[in-house]
Structure formats: C-alpha cells, structure tokens
Design a protein around this nucleic acid. Structure first.
Length: 200
DNA sequence: CTAGCGATCATCT
DNA sequence: GATGATCGCTAGG
C-alpha cells in the first residue's frame, strides 16, 4: 500500500509534485490516525531555485534534511507558528522537495477537528500548509523521518486525476524569489474545496 | 466579500 | 537584530 522508495528517488520534482495529487497522506500520532488525499502541492527545485531554502547550495543545520535521499520528511517552522510538511525527493545531495499545501480529509476527522479547535468540518480545516500541519499533528519531531515509517506515510489507493483536472500555476508567498516566483510549480486539483484560498 | 495586520520564534546575518 | 514556502481575526463595503 505504501508508496515504494523508488517513487521518491525521481529527480524530476515537478513530476513528483504532480503525481502526489490524489495520493493518500497519513500520520499516526499518539495512536490517532489522520489523513486524506493530497489536492495541492508545490515543487522546490534544488539549488537553482531562488524560492528554496537550499538555493545556492546553502547547507545549514536546518536544510540538511533537504539534501538527504528522497523518501523522508522535511518539517520546519514558518512565521514562528506553522509547522510545514515537505516530501524530500531525488538522490542524496540533491535538495529537491515538495511542499504539501492541502489535503482532502478522509480519516480521523474528529481528531483533526480537535487539533484545529473546530466543531464542524469546513474547507479550511486542511487548506493551506500551516493548516495541514496542524490538522495532521505534524511537528518538527517528524523532521527527517522516513515515509516508510509507521508515524507518517503515503499510499496509492488508485485515485488519479487527468491533466484536465489539474492546474499548474505560480507558487504562493515567494515573491522574493524574483523570476523563479513565476514558475508554474504549484499544482492543485481544480474545483476541490480543500485547495487553499484564492484559487480552485 | 475583501483588505489589512498581528501573532510568534527558529534561523540566518 | 531582521525576517519569513502563513493563518485567522477584525473592520469596512
């Protein structure tokens, strides 16, 4: 059921970002399983991508995880508040990663509501990377953990989308990345209500 | 409905 | 000492 390690070794990040749409992402935190299928992703294309933390081959304590072999999680804190989940891809030394921006929840709804401090399911429960992190109980303790583990994994349950059902547009919140901010590295499922804000 | 802004801290300079 | 791969609340139309 879990995606094989080979899936993550692909050195074409945008292809992986595209293929992750429709895959099921799960976490098992303190016995509670939560998750759903991915509906929005963003690709970060290694050392030549100005929007990436690893731009210019920048290796620091934080970015080390991105340089690992594909198939592990890169989790970091953004704006002092939000835990963001990325899927590290490609071979060791190649800092490619895919940011999980939105999930269509299917399992553990009650637990996600509790974590999000909500009482009824609304589209924003898992729309946006910070929301996904919170709903799935992602924390920096999961940084560097393998997607073959029993705390965090991705499954193929046969769901897939055609090119017509998927949009490829510029990424969010990366205006500082100059010309690279315009690259169509953000992928999402058209019309899905769990896709983050302006679009769909 | 949209626009503006505060929260809050690890990381890098 | 400055700054985010953001969110959600508030105010105003």
């Amino acid at each position: 059921m879990k995606l094989p390690e080979s899936f993550y070794l692909n050195n074409n990040v945008t292809e992986v970002a595209r293929k992750l749409l429709g895959k099921y992402l799960f976490t098992c935190i303190e016995g509670a399983i939560t998750g759903g299928y991915i509906v929005e992703t963003e690709a970060y294309n290694g050392i030549i991508d100005k929007a990436s933390h690893a731009y210019g081959n920048r290796q620091t304590a934080r970015t080390q995880t991105m340089f690992a072999k594909g198939g592990v999680a890169y989790v970091y804190l953004c704006y002092g508040i939000h835990e963001m989940l990325n899927v590290v891809t490609s071979v060791e030394g190649q800092p490619h990663a895919v940011l999980i921006r939105a999930v269509n929840p299917t399992v553990g709804i009650e637990e996600m509501l509790y974590r999000r401090n909500m009482t009824v399911v609304k589209p924003n429960i898992t729309a946006g990377p910070g929301s996904v992190g919170k709903a799935l109980g992602i924390s920096r303790k999961l940084n560097c953990i393998s997607f073959q583990s029993n705390e965090l994994w991705i499954e193929d349950q046969g769901l897939s989308f055609t090119d017509d059902e998927i949009a490829a547009v510029p990424r969010i919140g990366v205006a500082y990345a100059a010309e690279d901010a315009l690259l169509p590295y953000r992928f999402y499922v058209k019309g899905n209500v769990y896709v983050s804000k302006p679009n769909r």
